[in-house]
Design a protein around this nucleic acid. Structure first.
Length: 144
DNA sequence: GCCAACGTTGGC
DNA sequence: GCCAACGTTGGC
């Protein structure tokens, strides 16, 4: 079981939309490192849902509902090769959203990939960091 | 609105 | 294969 963090600008796709839709394809990743991370996701892996730009905080938890498959938002004949997506299912809202500023200020999270590689939209999270952030956010760890 | 970080493109 | 120019992301 691995942990991840995925970013979305709420203008484009928000946590509220994720909750409303339940399960939703996580499309639009156009970066090779992010693609590798998507490809490494396994069914049932959990990910923090982070609002970039507006909010700049972790607002919820999603789980991988379907492993990597071709991203339907890219043309099938795209000569650049195959981009991929996964399906994400909303698990629950973070009781107390964890802001970027709080994570940056926390020495325990100094080497978080979110901070070290701020432009990467799909990043791994270690189990230590996962548990630490869950404590900050008041996440019980249980599924609703 | 600005800027840093980084990826991509194209000339050579 | 190198590197400058440019575009994009995302924080501030």
């Amino acid at each position: 079981m691995a942990y991840w963090l995925v970013k979305s600008e709420p203008d484009a796709f928000s946590w509220q939309q994720q909750v409303r839709n339940g399960t939703e394809p996580w499309t639009g990743v156009r970066n090779h490192q992010a693609k590798r991370n998507l490809d490494a996701m396994r069914l049932g892996d959990l990910a923090f849902f982070y609002h970039s730009n507006i909010g700049r905080e972790i607002v919820g938890v999603v789980e991988v509902a379907k492993e990597a498959y071709p991203d339907p938002t890219v043309a099938a004949d795209n000569p650049k090769g195959q981009w991929i997506c996964v399906d994400m299912r909303a698990v629950g809202a973070m009781p107390a959203p964890v802001g970027l500023a709080a994570m940056k200020a926390d020495p325990a999270l100094a080497d978080l990939a979110l901070i070290r590689q701020s432009r990467l939209s799909v990043v791994p999270v270690s189990s230590e960091h996962w548990e630490h952030i869950c404590r900050l956010g008041g996440w019980s760890g249980t599924r609703p």
